[in-house]
Design a protein around this nucleic acid. Sequence first.
DNA 1: TGACATTGCTCAGCATGCTGATTATCAGTA
DNA 2: TACTGATAATCAGCATGCTGAGCAATGTCA
Lengths: 155, 155
Amino acid sequence: MRDNNEMPGHLARRFQQIAVAVFLAEVDEAGFDLTPVQYAALSAVRTNPGIDQVTLAGLIAYDRTTITGVVDRLVHKGLLVRHASSRDRRARELQITEAGKRTLRGITPAVEAAQRLMLRGLTEKEGAELMRLLRKATAAGNALSRAPLRDAELR
Amino acid sequence: MRDNNEMPGHLARRFQQIAVAVFLAEVDEAGFDLTPVQYAALSAVRTNPGIDQVTLAGLIAYDRTTITGVVDRLVHKGLLVRHASSRDRRARELQITEAGKRTLRGITPAVEAAQRLMLRGLTEKEGAELMRLLRKATAAGNALSRAPLRDAELR
DNA sequence: TGACATTGCTCAGCATGCTGATTATCAGTA
DNA sequence: TACTGATAATCAGCATGCTGAGCAATGTCA
C-alpha cells in the first residue's frame, strides 16, 4: 500500500485538520467563540440578507441537514435572526444582527491571520499555486459530494 | 471580505469533503463498508501488528479520543482484535484478523480509484504538485493540531 | 519506599457532516 | 379544484474530531 503521504485523501484530511485548529486558535486568541463553519455562514448571511437556509447551504457547500444546527447555534448566540418568509411559508429568512456585524468586524483580523498561518511553510508563490490547484480540483469534483457549491444567482 | 475561493480554509474543507464522498462511493461500489478513517487505521495495524492505540493514533494523526471509537467499530466488524498488553497493562495491543486482511486486499482497488478520482480535473503534473504542496504545508503545521503526526520509531 | 508526574485509555459533551425519513408547503397540471 | 411531484426545513441516527475530566498503571526521584 502507498504511504499515507502519497494519498491525496490523507493529505486532504490532514490539511483540513490543521486549518481548523489554526482557525480556532486565532479566533480564541482574539476573544471570540466561533467555528470556521459558523464564520462562513455568518459572513454569507451578511452579504445576502434575507437568504433562506437552502440557498445559504449551497453558497458555502454545507449539507442541508447540517445548516439547521449551525443556524440554531448562531441564533442562540444572538448573531442571526430567523423568521418565516412571507413569500414561502416553508422557508426561513435569515438576517444578521448588530451583534453579528460587530462580531464579523472584530473577528476579521484573526480570520485573515489564520488563513496566512495555515499556509506557513509555503512561499507566497507556492501558497497561490496550492489555492489554484485546490480550486481546480474542487471545481471538478463539486458534483460528487452531497452538498455541492451552488451559485445563488441560479436559483 | 475575501471570496470563499480565496480562503485556504474553505478550500481545505471543500477538498476534504469531496475526498470523503469519493472514497465512500468507490468503496461502497466495490461492496465494502469502511470509512476513510477506518481504512487508514486498519491499514496501519496490518503494517504494525501489536501496535498500541496511542502509537496508532500518532501514525495517522488521529486524536487519542477519536481512535477509541474507530477501533471499537473495527473490532465490532471483526477486522481487528484488541487485547491487553503484557508489558504495560494500561495499553491495548491491536492485531488485524484474517477478515481484516481479506477486506484490505479486496478494498485496495477501490481506494486507489478514489485517490485518482479526487484529483480528476488536474493533470498528472498538477496532481503531483498539489500533493507536494499539501505535504509541505502539513509538515509545517503539524504541531498546530491536537493530533500531530508522529513517527512510531521515535517512541 | 513514597510522593509525584506521566502515560494509556475511556468517557461526557459538543460541533460538523452524512443517510434517510417526515412534515408542511408550494407549483404545475389534469 | 384535486392530484402529483418538488421543495424547505427538521429529525433520528451514526461517524469523525475536538475539550476536558477521570481512572489505572507506570516511571522518576528524593
